[in-house]
Design a protein around this nucleic acid. Structure first.
Lengths: 93, 93
DNA sequence: TTAATATTTAGATAATTATCTAATAATTAA
DNA sequence: TTAATTATTAGATAATTATCTAAATATTAA
């Protein structure tokens, strides 16, 4: 999960994830949304992939990226634990 | 919220947050849990504070750090949006 | 097979960050 | 006020990361 947290630390990568929330897109379409070179976007996509936050699939000439939410659930789980008081006993209703 | 994501990217800082989940602790107590110099821990605590993830309060010679969960809620909100399909219409029951 | 298109990989560089030691500041007790 | 304790700030350095251009790879079309 460390890789996921690291991946989420970059604003460009978070924006990529938001783009993919609408629909899956190929690398070129993603790159178009940024004033950053294609190799740099490719690098970000690779980090997101390593972190398990996106999936990639070749479709002919294109490589289509899509959101993969399993790890996001793990991160949310970590966050929720952070919010809850660490009570050993259950609270009385 | 960018600062919060950046703060959460470091494993030492996440461990500090987990320590504070049990109870508030002063800087020295926090530093004891790590094989890292006190100034470095102080630096991490400062980043967590800047990110709004912890609060600090002087109590005599000590400075006591505690968890501040408001920003954690924001991050969780962002994550949840990431998980939900971006439907314009509500789903039919 | 050659050319065109889409994407990644390689290698370099600049910016950021984590860490250290030494010095400073704030509080308390003698 | 001086000494002891706690914690931070300053300044330096090493490691990591984001970015770029140029080159390589993979696919499709001519």
């Amino acid at each position: 999960m460390n890789e996921a947290f690291k991946a989420l630390a970059d604003p460009t990568r978070r924006e990529i994830l938001q783009l993919l929330r609408d629909k899956s897109r190929n690398a070129g379409e993603i790159a178009e949304h940024f004033n950053i070179s294609k190799p740099s976007i490719s690098h970000h996509l690779n980090l997101l992939k390593q972190a398990g936050l996106v999936l990639d699939e070749r479709q002919g000439q294109h490589i289509v990226y899509s959101l993969h939410t399993t790890v996001v659930e793990d991160v949310i789980g970590w966050m929720f634990k952070m919010m809850k008081k660490n009570d050993t006993e259950e609270e009385q209703p």
